[in-house]
């Protein structure tokens, strides 16, 4: 049976600036949490954009390779079509609709669902993040960073995705909030069966909450494996866990 997401040797670039991704392959199975690790400029965000069809918006393009969703080639699909096929995203910088209310933000996410399913889906998200329910009438731009991250995740979940992409989940957030959001993500996987592909700066967080991780370096996959394998990998410990432990 085909995996939920299979990235098969993707290379991508922005204009003539050289390859931002160099033959990257990865697999996400249904119902699993997979982390992408790597330093700034390693190609993590580019990989997310390549999967979600957003490269073109940023002046980039997939040069070769394929993205398969349940075996279907979606490499050159438009972003809205990819969302409709069940891949939603909480982007870097959160990008909530600042002038819209929390409720309207979620409703935009749910708009790709059939009308009859929208209300039930929004209720499920309010149940998951009671903080959003308390603030449902508030303009999203006036919320704290942590709340905006919850909203960005909630908006992506509102589309009832089979796969959720999260770019830089913990960036700029207090450790307690990061912990709370990851615990919710665990619930999401358990209740909805959603798979999650998350870009994470902190290797320690990633290995604690994720099933598998891929480490990108200079646009290539340098290391990959289950959380257990990577935790005991010497290179991983020297390069990523050591540095993370020292902060």
């Amino acid at each position: 049976m085909a995996s939920l997401l299979e990235v098969d040797g993707i290379s991508a670039s922005y204009g003539r600036m050289g390859l931002a991704l160099d033959r990257v392959s990865l697999t996400v199975e249904a119902g699993s949490i997979v982390a992408i690790l790597g330093a700034n400029g390693a190609g993590k965000t580019t990989l997310i954009r390549a999967i979600s069809g957003l490269l073109r918006l940023h002046g980039g393009a997939v040069a070769s390779g394929r993205t398969l969703l349940d075996g279907q080639d979606v490499t050159r699909f438009s972003p809205d079509r990819i969302v409709r096929l069940g891949v939603a995203q909480a982007p870097e910088g959160r990008m909530v609709f600042k002038t819209l209310s929390v409720e309207d933000n979620l409703a935009v996410g749910a708009a790709s669902l059939p009308r009859a399913r929208r209300g039930e889906r929004m209720d499920a998200i309010y149940h998951l993040f009671p903080r959003l329910a308390e603030r449902r009438g508030q303009a999203a731009g006036l919320m704290s960073g942590g709340e905006q991250q919850m909203l960005a995740v909630g908006r992506a979940l509102a589309a009832a995705p089979r796969l959720m992409l999260i770019d830089e989940l913990s960036l700029g957030l207090a450790p307690l909030i990061v912990k709370a959001i990851y615990e919710r993500l665990g619930e999401v996987v358990a209740t909805f069966g959603t798979a999650i592909l998350v870009v994470e700066q902190s290797a320690r967080i990633a290995l604690r909450y994720c099933d598998r991780a891929y480490v990108l370096e200079g646009g290539r996959v340098a290391l990959s494996g289950t959380a257990g394998e990577l935790s005991s990998d010497e290179r991983m410990r020297d390069l990523y866990l050591g540095a993370a432990a020292g902060h």
Partner: peptide, 23 residues
Amino acid sequence: TSVGLLMRAAADSHEAATIAGVK
């Protein structure tokens, strides 16, 4: 209306709306 909502979302941010699946 829901189309009105999507218009407001697109007006708020083209990029965020694209990411959220809005045409």
